[in-house]
Design a protein around this nucleic acid. Structure first.
Length: 800
RNA sequence: GCGGGCGUGGCGAAAUUGGCAUACGCGCAAGAUUUAGGAUCUUGUGAAGCAAUUCAUGCAGGUUCAAGUCCUGUCGCCCGCACCA
């Protein structure tokens, strides 16, 4: 068969589209498989081969599931709101709608050329009114349920994008989008109370099958810590200074207190603080520092001692000084700490710098040199003296604190509430109206979608306000409650909103009455397998798990967790081994590879490159190797002869079917393909193949290289589509050879190879080994000390 | 600093989980075919040696009949979190 991939691939892509064989059906009697990939952001750069890799894993799984008889939902869509599109619109004056449509068209074309088995009838686009209506609907439900609040806060602000960012979007003090330095700015912020779900987000991880490193990152991000809150009295007033600590058992070692420079008690007692001017000065200096400087660069301890107010250690009545320092954050715990310099590195540095006492309460280190942070025997600690176990001494102290009413057990999370608004045009309008009389009022559900007005100016205002603020007919409205004059919220939602629930919309994408029909949700959820990039493991995944858990709590969905299983693919690096980027010019466009080698070759190569989860550089010559493989596969029909199959080749077939079937489930596509290559080598060496075997092989390869397989299936008398033909079965008995080659070692060194029956007993195997010439020579005249036989593996004779 | 992972030919990588190290592919070499080759096919290909053999999984030890795999130490790289109290 001549391998004309252009003709073959176009032909089958057309047939698949016409026949609709990849459309999921709502036949609830069949077992279902919902495979989900992260829908792309349709950027102007088009897709690169990394996208293709991200979708190829579940593509193979989904195709295999269809052949196994499952009702498969493998959908695709576009996460199209966002800054890059808007920035492009500002630069070129093109409307973001037009830019988005153009980019989606281009992405769609690229995806179709690769022959992905997506259900194209269920495509979603987060920027369509029929979609964002429901994004707004969920927001209003959250508003209704007290999960939305507004606050003035110091926020991460990107001066270049003129936008407020969540902590997640400003990691390392850099803007996630333009990489400018983030500054702290006081602003009105809409928050989603994700912290209310912190515990559920953490405990839910026990019931899902995520790769261990994915779980770990989420656990880390949620950052639960257990400890205690302790109230310290102030010397000047009947006022408590409340702190959080994970080591309440070190309370006897406290020699000073530290408050965050922004701590509200400072202002409250300003008139009692003798050096209040210094405090204000220090606070202003700190505010100038970016988060990055404050947390990364300047680890040298700075601070100011509060004159005129001290704290009383509630456990021993000692008066201790209070400092302010920027190593204590207002955003974590209570914004104040008890400092135990003997057993905390940061407190130790601070105490050394300011000449404060250091009292050892845990034995084991040398506190004249450094803080001792390991565990050990408690000393100088009254009733805790002699305790050696950390958990018991903490429990004893908490018990004491609670009895005396000076503190209690407590839990803290690193995760903060989700800053949810952006001063931008290209996002979902926040459906809230500000009324002078009624306050914040929700737009009534029946008025959704609250449409994004058509504008011509997309740039944010100099004051950082949304472009929507300039449109008077949008801003001015009537209060839905009292009917009086009111103003609309002009901020929009962040990029992460639309992607927090898209997997639900695929289930019923054209439903105008609900997110999706309940019986369909019940059938399809949860997502059986979700694959995506490691970069989305903490943001998108945590946000969407939060939304899903909320929807569960209000009875919209029937599963607590959206994703039953989550895996991640590794990057494809440029041919130079660097991360692909436009600026380096090392981006590989899948279209180029499809043009030159064909979609099947591209697919096989991407999965053959190496471990699916690891990064690997692109290699053009290795692509050619995969082309050779596909071409040799295309020639297999010429080897079909009526008979003449050897037991060895038959066994190899069964072994290969078994290996490929198993490897696919473990995302070990590289070894699955290697096994098929090896089988082709053996077939060629043998010189013939039966028609049945050919058809088995074609079905086995079909999820990887579906176009050529469909063609061969048709040419060789297969009925229907190969893509729907039954997945090959194997006979376990036939994967085992009757005789096996095993190695013979003398004293653990390989000396020979013998052929023994697979079921040989120890005596038989050793007897055969001792007849081997090389072995005879090796053991001649020596004492046999020990004989080891591992069936099917090895014989080892120990001699002296 | 804390947490996780990795280190195997010239290259991408395998290794049934303690049992023939280097499968599969690339590259390279020789040959065939070709007007030509960045095409195709055949053969060879960890290193040293004429050989039998010996040495090879970052480095140094250890356990074991047997170690890429387990243990101890050490070096190097990658990722995540990070003044989180």
């Amino acid at each position: 068969m001549k391998y004309d991939f252009k003709q073959i691939e176009a032909k089958w892509q057309d047939r698949w589209e016409e026949s609709g064989i990849f459309h999921a059906s709502d036949d609830f009697s069949k077992p279902k498989f919902y495979g989900l990939i992260e829908f792309p952001y349709p950027s102007g750069a088009g897709m690169h081969v990394g996208h293709i890799k991200a979708y190829s894993g579940l593509e193979v799984i989904s195709r295999k599931r269809r052949m196994q008889g499952y009702n498969v939902l493998y959908p695709i869509g576009f996460d199209a709101f966002g800054l890059p599109t808007e920035n492009y619109a500002i630069k070129t004056g093109t409307h973001p709608r037009q830019v988005t449509d153009k980019n989606i068209e281009r992405f769609t074309g690229q995806l179709k050329r690769v022959g992905f088995s997506f259900d194209w009838t269920r495509t979603v686009d987060t920027t369509e009114e029929s979609y964002y209506k429901w994004t707004q609907w969920i927001f209003l439900k959250m508003f209704e349920n007290g999960l939305v609040f507004r606050d003035t806060a110091l926020v991460n602000y990107c001066p270049s994008c003129k936008v407020v960012l969540s902590n997640e979007d400003s990691q390392g003090g850099k803007c996630d989008i333009c990489h400018s330095d983030i500054v702290q700015k006081s602003k009105d912020v809409w928050y989603l109370r994700i912290t209310k779900y912190a515990d559920k987000l953490l405990s839910g991880l026990d019931s899902v099958d995520y790769l261990p490193n994915i779980k770990m990152q989420q656990v880390n991000w949620i950052g639960k810590s257990t400890g205690a809150f302790v109230n310290f009295k102030l010397s000047v007033a009947d006022e408590k200074l409340r702190i959080y600590t994970t080591r309440p058992d070190t309370l006897f070692g406290v020699t000073f207190m530290v408050m965050a420079p922004e701590h509200p008690l400072l202002e409250k007692y300003a008139d009692r603080i003798a050096n209040y001017a210094d405090v204000v000065n220090y606070r202003e200096e700190c505010a100038k520092k970016t988060e990055f400087e404050r947390t990364q660069l300047v680890k040298d301890k700075t601070g100011v001692k509060i004159e005129g107010i001290a704290a009383i250690n509630p456990i021993n009545g000692k008066e201790i000084p209070i400092f302010i320092s920027d190593y204590v954050m207002m955003g974590y715990g209570t914004g104040a700490i008890m400092a135990v310099p003997a057993h905390d590195d940061r407190d130790y540095d601070f105490a050394k710098k300011f000449g404060i006492d250091i009292i050892e309460v845990i034995k084991g280190g040398d506190i004249s040199k450094a803080a001792y942070t390991e565990s050990g025997e408690m000393v100088n600690s009254d009733f805790l003296n002699g305790y050696t176990d950390k958990a018991t001494s903490i429990a004893a102290m908490i018990k004491y604190l609670e009895e005396k009413g000076i503190g209690e057990e407590g839990v803290q999370f690193k995760m903060k509430d989700w800053a949810f608004n952006r001063q931008r045009y290209w996002g979902e309008p926040i459906p809230i109206v500000h009324c002078e009389k009624c306050g914040m009022v929700a737009v009534p559900y029946e008025e959704l979608p609250l449409r994004l007005p058509n504008v011509t100016e997309f740039a944010p205002g100099e004051g950082g306000e949304s472009p929507l603020a300039k449109i008077e007919e949008y801003v001015n409205c009537k209060c839905p409650k009292c009917g009086g004059a009111a103003k609309r919220e002009t901020d929009t939602m962040p990029q992460w909103a639309g992607s927090s629930w898209y997997f639900l919309r695929y289930i019923d994408p054209h439903n105008s009455e609900a997110i999706a029909a309940p019986q369909k949700l019940n059938y399809w959820m949860p997502v059986d397998w979700y694959n995506g990039g490691m970069e989305h493991v903490t943001r998108h995944m945590i946000y969407s798990r939060f939304w899903h858990k909320f929807l569960y709590d209000i009875g919209v969905v029937n599963t607590e967790e959206p994703y039953a299983k989550r895996t991640a693919q590794g990057l494809i690096l440029g041919p130079d081994g660097d991360k692909m980027s436009k600026s380096k010019g090392n981006v590989v466009d899948p279209n180029d590879t499809v043009d030159e080698y064909g979609a099947d070759v591209l697919r096989v190569y991407i999965l053959f490159m190496g471990d699916y989860a690891s990064a690997a550089p692109w290699s053009e010559s290795s692509v050619r190797g995969c082309k050779r493989f596909i071409e040799r596969v295309a020639e297999l029909p010429s080897l079909v002869k009526g008979s003449g199959v050897t037991p060895q080749l038959e066994s190899k077939f069964h072994k290969t079917v078994k290996k490929v079937s198993q490897d696919i489930e473990e995302l070990k596509f590289n070894t699955a393909i290697a096994a098929m290559m090896s089988l082709v080598n053996d077939i060629e060496a043998h010189g013939s193949i039966t028609s049945d075997e050919l058809m088995t092989f074609v079905r086995l390869l079909c999820p990887f290289a579906p176009h050529i397989c469909e063609e061969m299936w048709e040419q060789n008398g297969g009925s229907g589509f190969c893509s729907l033909a039954p997945w090959p079965e194997y006979d376990e008995a036939k994967t085992v050879d009757a005789t096996v080659e095993i190695a013979v070692q003398i004293n653990g060194k390989m000396r020979s190879v013998i052929l023994v029956p697979a079921k040989a007993e120890k005596d038989e195997a050793i007897a055969i080994a001792k007849m081997d010439e090389k072995i005879i020579a090796a053991i001649e005249g020596k004492n046999i000390v020990k004989e080891i036989y591992v069936p099917g593996r090895i014989v080892n004779i120990v001699v002296r």
